[in-house]
Nucleic acid binder design. Structure first.
Length: 474
RNA sequence: GGUCCCUUCGUCUAUCGGUUAGGACGCCAGAUUUUCAAUCUGGAGAGAGGGGUUCGACUCCCCUAGGGACUGCCA
């Protein structure tokens, strides 16, 4: 990799750096989204780096799961994805430089010694300090040892955080973190700094669990005489009960939200509104989010996941989404549910989706709302409907059948007018024939207005269902 | 234990010393009505507590309480 990255329009480079030890949860997804939004807003670049330096816990399945989640959300790296482990040599090279410059040292403390020191440091309320910091090497320098950063013992380090504001740490509170493990493997804190520097990252936007690390990492940047990036530590997302996100909240992986029928753009909108806002704007598209977003406006406090609001936001995106796309997504959901579908299900859905999408919050709900149109003739009618079909009603529906058969145009407003004038000419309200007609056309399934039902079904199917019912009562 | 962060309606947020503290979701009521929704109208609902600073604090400072992160040869 080049150590002098290509400049962007604005010079801004952000990155999302997940560690592949599990699926992509929505907290991580939002972090990625904020990085992406900020890069787009500034005309900069958004990069992805997989932090797989922990060989024990990193898995390929997790890598795949994370990218599946990111792809679904539409967040792609503007450059090739970097895998941190592949850069271990470069990390070691930097440590070597620090060693030579006296900014790092070898530490031969054993695990037992370390534990004892840790206990002591904790009791005293101080940061841990290795005795090898200033001591000469042991008799056998080849004995197992780590390499630690040699941090300053006085002064303060300022993290001028984009979200939290200026935060200062006394250097004496910051311990000498391990740079290279005993097996020569680089650690996280070293690898992030080196990679962010080499990748030209200008804005590190990440979870606020890293705020403390930012101070330690700042020290490493300074030791290498590198430019320190701007930091923006965003609060974590909590479950509806205010506690950390977990399984019992129903979902935390973005893939689960996809399965539950949320739209990626709805998810992006909702996630963006969690911890960030732009005046009174609640429902917005990507273009708007990009033009409005600034890390500096991110809220400092953690936000809770609110399903009701997610549903609302998603429903708003659902109603403006392309019908063909929604029909396709609905069909996929139905297939995933192993639903019993007619051969022409796709065509039926395409006709039905526009008539029912306003009432749906998710694709799954959309599928439920489309169920009436997927039934195959002859429909089995509900007891309630059968009861309503007395002679008077059958005769009235028969007259309606004639009118419908003669309808010159089979459209939403035409059918609405036809039904209205029919009610007028019969001298009755909709209550006299609406419920039974509905039952006949839907078999009892949830469905929209009668004119929408018939528009969705089309002339042939609508009349067919009506004829079936009337014939059975003849 | 130590360091650091956070705290406005139930929830997400606006406010950047002077507002009847605004909006959204949800909730409640009404309207509509051919089921369920959707839609429309109205309503209830908040500055954790205590000190300061100031003519005036949600807003600035301090303390307390509560929540959280870090304190790993995890990231």
């Amino acid at each position: 990799m080049s150590h002098s990255p290509a400049p962007t329009n604005s010079g801004v480079v952000t990155r999302f750096a997940p560690s592949p030890t599990g699926f992509l949860h929505i907290g991580g997804a939002r972090t990625a989204l904020f990085n992406w939004l900020y890069a787009r807003h500034t005309g900069g670049k958004f990069l992805i780096r997989v932090e797989d330096t922990d060989r024990e816990r990193s898995t390929e399945a997790a890598v795949a799961a994370i990218f599946e989640g990111l792809d679904w959300l539409g967040l792609k790296s503007d450059d090739e994805v970097i895998f941190q482990y592949s850069r271990a040599d470069r990390h070691r090279e930097v440590v070597q430089q620090m060693l030579e410059a006296g900014r790092a040292y070898r530490c031969w403390m054993t695990v037992e010694e370390l534990e004892a020191a840790r206990e002591k440091a904790r009791a005293e309320g101080k940061a841990i300090r290795s005795p090898w910091r200033d001591a000469p090497p042991p008799a056998d320098p080849s004995a197992p040892h780590v390499i630690r950063f040699k941090g300053p013992l006085d002064g303060e380090t300022l993290v001028d955080d984009l979200v939290k504001g200026p935060v200062t740490f006394r250097n004496i509170e910051l311990d000498d973190l391990v740079l290279l493990r005993a097996d020569g493997a680089p650690t996280y804190n070293l690898a992030v700094v080196v990679d962010d520097h080499d990748m030209g990252v200008t804005h590190v936007i990440r979870g606020d669990d890293h705020l403390n690390n930012a101070a330690r990492q700042t020290l490493i940047y300074q030791a290498m005489d590198w430019d320190v990036p701007a930091f923006g530590h965003i609060p974590l997302i909590h479950g509806p009960d205010g506690a950390k996100l977990s399984k019992r909240h129903g979902a935390q992986a973005v893939g689960e939200f996809a399965d539950m029928g949320y739209l990626p753009e709805g998810m992006r909108n909702y996630l963006a509104r969690l911890g960030w806002g732009h005046g009174d704007d609640e429902v917005f598209n990507d273009e708007q989010a990009i033009s409005w977003f600034d890390v500096r406006d991110v809220v400092k406090a953690p936000a809770r996941l609110d399903w009701a609001k997610l549903n609302f936001i998603n429903s708003q995106h659902l109603r403006v989404a392309d019908d063909a796309r929604l029909a396709d997504l609905t069909l996929r959901a139905l297939v995933a549910q192993k639903a019993d579908l007619p051969a022409d299900a796709a065509a039926r859905l395409l006709n039905t989706v526009p008539q029912v999408k306003e009432g749906a919050k998710t694709i799954l709900e959309l599928a439920e709302h489309c169920a009436f149109a997927l039934k195959v003739r002859p429909l089995s009618l509900e007891e309630k409907t059968l009861k309503q079909l007395n002679d008077e009603t059958v005769e009235r529906l028969g007259r309606l059948r004639v009118l419908l058969g003669e309808a010159p145009v089979w459209g939403l407003s035409e059918l609405e007018n036809l039904l209205k004038s029919f009610a007028e000419s019969e001298g009755v309200g909709f209550g006299k024939f609406g419920p039974p007609l509905r039952g006949i056309l839907t078999g009892g399934s949830q469905a929209p207005d009668l004119n929408k039902i018939m528009t969705a079904l089309g002339r042939e199917e609508s009349l067919g269902r009506l004829d079936d019912a009337l014939a059975s009562r003849a």
